[in-house]
Amino acid sequence: MVVLSITSLPYYDRWCTSLFPTPIGDCGIAWRNDVIVATRLPDKSSIETGRRLAARTGGVSGEPPADIRSAITSMTALLEEERTDLTSILCDLSGIDPFATQVYAAMHAIPAGETSTYGAIAAQLGDKRLARTVGLALGRNPLPIIVPCHRVVGTGGKLTGFSGADHVDTKLRILTIEGAQIGGAPGLFDDLPLAAKPRR
């Protein structure tokens, strides 16, 4: 079972933030009560990543406790080309609307090295016409990497909008690290790091 939400946490508990180095740059993480509430992909600089994460969460810089350090280790390993399963990382999605929560759960279940499409996720949730709404939910994803919005692509494997500093380039870089196949029928260059083949 996908674990993405827990009982709402007391609002007065302090939120803390920290940055951690990865092969794609310094990422950010925020937590309270030893549970992750947000992550952030690298911005143009580490200072900007820290500033934006603090502004979004109201958190103060802190030293990650053991459970958060373990999650950081797993996320870093994934970005170092290890097939790491992040589905056991406990996160808090209290306050997220129910449809977006379903979208994030569907994304959370996509394994590294695979992709899906906005339309496929919409169909999975009951109405393929909601592909645009799925895209809007992805744009508000509070937990990139853990909730792998980079694994959702457009029809035919088209790499569309993404929240990282370099947008689609960041998305492509992460998919390449994961060995994702994006595109149509097998071809001459399928053994290269990235071809693009979404799950249907």
Rank of each mutant, 00 (worst) to 15 (best):
A195L: 08
I68C: 02
C27Q: 04
R132D: 08
S61D: 14
A55K: 10
N141W: 09
E63L: 12
A55D: 08
I96D: 07
E82K: 14
V60I: 15
C149Y: 09
D169C: 10
P65K: 01
M1T: 14
T22R: 11
R173A: 09
E63G: 07
I177G: 03
G184R: 15
S74N: 04
R51T: 05
Y12T: 13
P111Y: 06
P193C: 11
L188P: 10
V2K: 10
R52Y: 08
G119P: 02
I29V: 12
G113I: 14
S45I: 14
D85C: 07
L9F: 03
T84A: 10
I29Q: 04
L136Q: 12
T17I: 11
G161N: 07
E48Q: 14
A137Q: 05
V147A: 01
L19W: 13
R140I: 00
A55L: 03
E63W: 06
H150F: 09
D13R: 06
S116W: 06
F99L: 06
T115Y: 11
L93S: 02
I146F: 01
L125Q: 04
P64G: 08
I177K: 12
Q124H: 06
P193T: 13
V35Y: 11
A54F: 05
K128V: 15
T155V: 11
A123L: 05
P193K: 08
L125D: 02
V35R: 10
R132N: 14
M1H: 14
F20R: 04
G164D: 04
W15K: 14
L136P: 02
I47A: 12
P193W: 13
G28I: 01
S94L: 00
S94N: 05
D67G: 15
A55I: 00
E178N: 02
R51A: 15
A100W: 05
K44A: 12
L93T: 09
V168S: 04
T115W: 10
S74T: 12
L86P: 00
T87Q: 07
A137R: 03
R140N: 05
L86D: 00
L138D: 01
P65E: 01
T49P: 04
G95A: 02
D34N: 10
T117K: 09
S70D: 11
L188M: 12
C27D: 03
L53D: 05
W31Y: 15
K171Q: 13
D191H: 06
P142D: 02
L130M: 15
S74I: 14
D127M: 03
S116K: 12
K171M: 10
I182T: 15
E48V: 11
S70N: 08
L86Y: 00
V2Q: 11
G139E: 15
A165P: 01
T160I: 14
P65Y: 03
A30W: 00
D34Y: 09
S5G: 07
M1G: 08
H167C: 11
I121K: 01
S45L: 07
A109Q: 07
Q124E: 13
T87I: 13
L125W: 04
N33F: 00
A105D: 07
T155A: 09
R51P: 01
A109S: 10
D85R: 05
T22Y: 06
R52H: 07
K158D: 13
L78D: 01
E81W: 06
V2F: 06
R56T: 02
A123F: 05
N33I: 13
G135Q: 02
Y11F: 07
D13F: 02
G119E: 07
E63R: 15
A123I: 10
A196W: 09
H108E: 01
G58H: 07
G157C: 13
G25R: 03
